[in-house]
Design a protein around this nucleic acid. Sequence first.
DNA 1: CGAGTTTGACCCGCGC
DNA 2: GCGCGGGTCAAACTCG
Length: 506
Amino acid sequence: MDKPRPEFAFLRSDDFLRPNSSVHETVSTDQKQPIKEMDFFSRNNQHNQPNEQESNRGSSTRTEAAAGVNTGLDLLSLNTGIQRSGNDNLNIRPKTEFDTLQVELERVRDENRKLRSMLEQITKSYGDLQGQLLMAMGEAARLKKDDTTCKPGTRQLMDPRPSGGLDINEASVSDEKNQEGSVSPANTTEVMSNESEHHKIPSAGKKTCFGDGPDQGSTHSWGSPKSPTVLDPSKSEEQASEVPFRKARVSVRARSEAPLISDGCQWRKYGQKMAKGNPCPRAYYRCTMAAGCPVRKQVQRCAEDKTILITTYEGNHNHPLPPAATAMANSTSAAAAMLLSGSNTSKEALVNSAGFFHPMPYLSTMASLSASAPFPTITLDLTQGTNPMHFHRGPPSSTSFPSPLHACPQLIGQPLYAPPKIPVLPSAQMGHRHPSMVETVTAAITSDPNFTAALAAAISTIIGAPRSSYGNTPNSHGENSKPFSGMPALPGSPQLPQSCTTFSTN
DNA sequence: CGAGTTTGACCCGCGC
DNA sequence: GCGCGGGTCAAACTCG
């Protein structure tokens, strides 16, 4: 995860923190010139401005990190006045000086960490906002286009919460701002309750145009390709932040012959249909862990290989999830976010976004995106090896799941065996790793249904790892670890909304 | 008796 | 406009 970014990070951090041109100059100067101790002395003597010191500190940290040499960090502190006299006694009391330097070094390191985290947050917020902007623009264009705002049957496709997609796992400032007026982080549950109320509205409500808020259109949230309509222009801005996203789906393909697997959530079947082109019926489930939870899932066996179970999730839980479910929810939330962030762009852009726009390198080897479907769908395929070619660029089938089966039983998500924090690996590289382990895990999965759920959680943990620093950490590898750090279990807590996605192979 | 499942009917969007 | 297919509802049914 520690990709080579230090210099960039610092520059960006400085930019954000101190939009002062002098800072930029100083930083760039530091970049070009090798930093020597004497340089620091002279520079600090020349201009001993606070900003200057800050930037010097940053650059020296940078150098230190790059070369493993303690360059001028501590020397800087010598000139900051703290050790003014100590500077003169540099040769006399090296021990004390060394201690001082160490303290200073620690301090600078802390600052470095803070800056990095700030940069990460800013970068992430930027990406989120970019996605939201795209969504909002697309929404606006669409609204202008069809203008038939209160058409009966117009359905709400996305969860009204701003968390519907992009900010699912985030607590960035910008996200909070987006939520204000509609959802504060603290009342997510409440908002979801509102949503659930809409869900409970009987058919009479279906064709009613709700002008005083995000119309849920509730009962038909699934798969409706249309976007929500904004009825009241005065609220358009607010609603744009509330319902800017199309509803994304996350489809998980897993090889399992088990009829039922506990995924940590409780589901109630509310329907079953024969889908065209598939002899196996498709079952519809609704989450019953909390009243009004909007999360639904479809479960269907693959027509071509009945050992493969395709589970498609949609919606966000309005309640805390068990650890096993949470991990998967985190990852698929991220997947959905990634998908949504590019859903107004071309399919190619979508595919590209999976590569770099989102910090989920493994998705590129496990996931396929469908932009041709009426709703954006990302498919996490746990049934096949990390065949680099698996990443579909061609048009998928009408929906993502009946896509041709890549029936190589060789593997199940090799990313499993990748250290959670290793840098991005070329998928081709990953595809050659540990074939024997793959077979072992495949066997384990097919023989133990519960393992599949655990596997999904583990995969999601890895996938979601990059987000861990933002609070909603999927860090809980131990699913049973009591203090589930990433998931406050209080319904009213400022818990971030969860993606629907849990994992199941019923 | 409550919770979950089954299943036919209904609604809606979409393509022709 | 009509038919098809996906998704949902809700009454009937089953089960513990």
